[in-house]
Design a protein around this nucleic acid. Structure first.
Lengths: 149, 149
DNA sequence: GCTGAAAAATGATTTAC
DNA sequence: GTAAATCATTTTTCAGC
């Protein structure tokens, strides 16, 4: 049981693919009237199933061609852990995942080049009192694909 | 030089935060007329700086509460490498990054639970002839934040 | 919860400056 | 790039089933 019914799933999937679909097009795709789709979308937004809408951007074109995953773990004894809060101020950090395994968090960062990455890593280490292990992204075959229906 | 000028950056950032902003609101934010913003957005879309729009979804609510990073590397001699193509058919795989380091690719996957993860990993190994090393996501402090302006 | 239709708002295009 | 006018669509609301 997932709490989201089939038609709603189809709606969510369509909007995950194209967040600017009109209600007319949506209605056509899922086989409902515009009004019905509209109120379903509103409920999905209210329930938080749809958390918002975002433009998908080309980071290269924006001058941020270098992406990297940064695994972090605390130095010495693990204190009360608020690394995400301490790092939230860095706009280079696109995502922060708390993970199982050797590391505590996995960050996805976007920077202009190696020099910026070096500087960012130093700042992260200081700000959160952690060590870092960085995996550079060479290319991105695909990203942000819509979730399974 | 990034090829994207300051006002355009502001536009892209605003749309990355809220992909459904009206041109009126956008114009207000960046201090331009509606017409000017409108044609800038169109150019940004045409140039591919804005690659599209997507709804941000709550994977838990959709019945996919388990996320994981799956690092893969080929078994034995690295043949002509088309793992991304071979894996593109799995809807559980949200993203595929080609990475530097010990592993060849890093996948982000979303599944319903451990059993599905196990099955997916087996399928990935067979489909792409790779070994996998999986890092389970425990929680997501933040994700998909807008890029730096 | 769905439909259908009217009203309000926004999008898209054009013109002139 | 601004401002204004226009027309097409879309969004939003509402009565009724």
């Amino acid at each position: 049981m997932s709490g989201v019914e089939d038609t709603d799933r189809a709606i969510v999937r369509s909007l995950a693919e194209d967040g600017r679909l009109s209600y007319t097009d949506l209605a056509e795709r899922v086989g409902l009237s515009v009004s019905a789709v509209h109120q379903r979308v509103r409920r999905l937004e209210q329930r938080g199933v749809i958390k918002g809408y975002a433009a998908r951007v080309d980071h290269e074109a924006l001058g941020l061609p270098l992406s990297a995953f940064v695994a972090i773990r605390p130095i010495g004894a693990p204190e009360p852990d608020d690394a995400p809060d301490k790092l939230a101020g860095f706009p280079e950090i696109e995502a922060c995942y708390s993970v199982a395994g050797d590391d505590f968090y996995l960050l996805l960062v976007r920077v202009a080049g190696p020099a910026d990455l070096e500087r960012l890593l130093q700042q992260i280490r200081v700000a959160a009192n952690v060590t870092t292990r960085t995996t550079v992204v060479l290319s991105t075959p695909y990203e942000g694909r819509p979730p399974q229906v």
